[in-house]
Design a binder for these strands. Structure first.
Lengths: 295, 295
DNA sequence: GTTCATTTATGCGAATTAAGTATTGATGCG
DNA sequence: CGCATCAATACTTAATTCGCATAAATGAAC
């Protein structure tokens, strides 16, 4: 294949005009150049593309077939250039997003949906993992953006709070405290607590620990569960209670109830977090997008 | 887009080698030519494709994206040339095939299946119509090949017999003659006949007329039906009998029986037929294929 | 820190390729 | 049969691409 795009351009012009002279005019060149290009192309392919004499020009069967291909190729080339430019701008590519239980129960679906609409050429790859793991993966580059449970402040990382939830008590329906509309933290002093795995949920537990300490007690943890669903499952067994995020409200299983905590200003933040330096262009586009996001 | 395939070729080479010198060697040109082509390409697209200094060459994100496109384009170009060549040779295109009831009940399915396997790039467009209509459509170019009921000899047309059937009597099960194993034609002298529309089935009727005449009688036609299924339907109503092609054997409806005709050498030919001149290349390929077809 | 080896980029003349001008030659129409 | 039209060809000119020589940059080694 020793022809190039010029030949294809010229061929398309002639095929459209069915006239070498007019095609040349459209191409802003002289007619002989067109004649030569067409014969070169035909020679190269080894097939006559245009049935022509000095009075008439018509596409051959092969010419019609090749013409279609020519349009395809030109279109595909144009797209390729666009894609390269988009990739440069971070508007095309892949974004690996880490997320916690709280994030996926809360604002993340809306955020990702909106982002996908604005940037259809960016493939989102969401990965569930807890805050501490996400931070490791951000460091190692395994994920581009994390949605973690804060409050959090890590050097060299950018943060954006995307969700603010209240602490709430989750009880089984028969629990005595379920009769109250709101619960004072101190009332939970002697309750058996079911929490997420103390290693995995470290950031949330530290926060919760401080909250309970300031209410004058330490949680009596009787079970550690794998995730929110497991916690709720164990509570449904009436094995204990938990303090969870208010974002669980929509996802609570049958038999469980949520009660607000009285006189507690402390909130749970879910934050988007990404490496300040060494962020891919796609990450930067996502960061920009988050900038415009209203809590 | 003021670049051509040369730039794409060079870019692919560099992307593969990640080394301008070695790429140049592979391309059998000097290194500066490669350098220049790459910068031209980058300038044209407006995006840096290769992160390079005097020690290292690496694809940028945009470069990776564009490289994929380059492979696609080159492949697509190669295919386009192949398709044009195939089209020239008649190995790609469309073939409109007319066929009769007898053809589709007989050898046509096998023929078309085999042809499709040998020529997957030829789109077959089968159209049902009777012999006389097919001949009109062949004249006007509406169909490329007809499968008609012969025997037939038309000037300027090529013929190839693809199927030879016996005349058989089709009766309803309760018919007195159904008790016989074979039937003499003369026994049908006074039977009410159900045949296809006399205009549409002209060629078959003429043939059948001659056959009955030589048996010493003229058919008493009481009903004309639209197609074979309709004929059989009316026979199932016990409105009459018919003489049909033995190819109907596999398709006969419940309640009907077939009886061979004694002492009849006459056969029904199904023939492929196409215009000798002005045949498209695809038609010629089909004709060649038929040449190798064993009856 | 300096030198060296390696490799991409650039300047310039040569070679190749494409385009332009003028003309030929073929073809259909009046 | 001549004329008008239009693609093809010959030859010249312009543009592009290439190769060689070399500069400039960079990392490694001493």
């Amino acid at each position: 294949m020793n022809f190039d795009l010029r030949h294809i351009r010229y061929f398309c012009a002639v095929a459209e005009q069915l006239h070498f002279g007019r095609a040349a005019e459209k191409l802003h060149i002289a007619q002989p150049a067109v004649s030569r290009a067409i014969s070169q192309l035909e020679q190269e392919i080894g097939v006559r593309l245009l049935d022509r004499n000095n009075r008439k020009v018509a596409l051959t069967v092969a010419g019609r077939v090749f013409l279609e291909s020519c349009y395809d190729i030109q279109e595909s080339l144009q797209k390729s250039v666009m894609r390269a430019r988009k990739a440069e701008d971070g508007k095309l590519g892949q974004l690996v997003v880490g997320y916690t239980d709280f994030a996926i129960m809360g604002s993340l679906p809306k955020i990702l949906k909106e982002f996908r609409q604005q940037h259809p050429d960016i493939l989102l790859a969401p990965i569930h993992s807890v805050t501490s793991t996400q931070i490791e993966h951000l460091e190692s580059g395994k994920i581009d953006v994390g949605f973690v449970t804060g409050p959090l402040m890590i050097p060299d990382f950018h943060c954006k709070t995307v969700q603010e939830d209240r602490f709430v008590v989750v009880l089984y329906r028969n629990h005595p405290l379920a009769k109250q509309k709101t619960i004072n933290l101190a009332q939970l002093r002697d309750e058996p607590f079911i929490l997420g795995n103390l290693n995995d949920w470290k950031y949330y537990h530290d926060h919760l620990y401080r909250v309970c300490r300031s209410a004058g007690f330490t949680m009596n943890v009787v079970q550690q569960a794998y995730n929110s669903d497991a916690i709720f499952g164990l509570i449904a067994c009436e094995m204990g209670v938990t303090i969870h995020s208010s974002c669980a409200g929509d996802y609570l299983r049958e038999g469980l109830v949520i009660r607000e905590i009285a006189n507690l200003n402390e909130t749970i933040l879910t934050q988007a977090i990404w490496k300040e330096n060494s962020a891919s262009q796609v990450t930067k586009v996502f960061a920009e997008f988050l900038d415009t996001w209203k809590l």
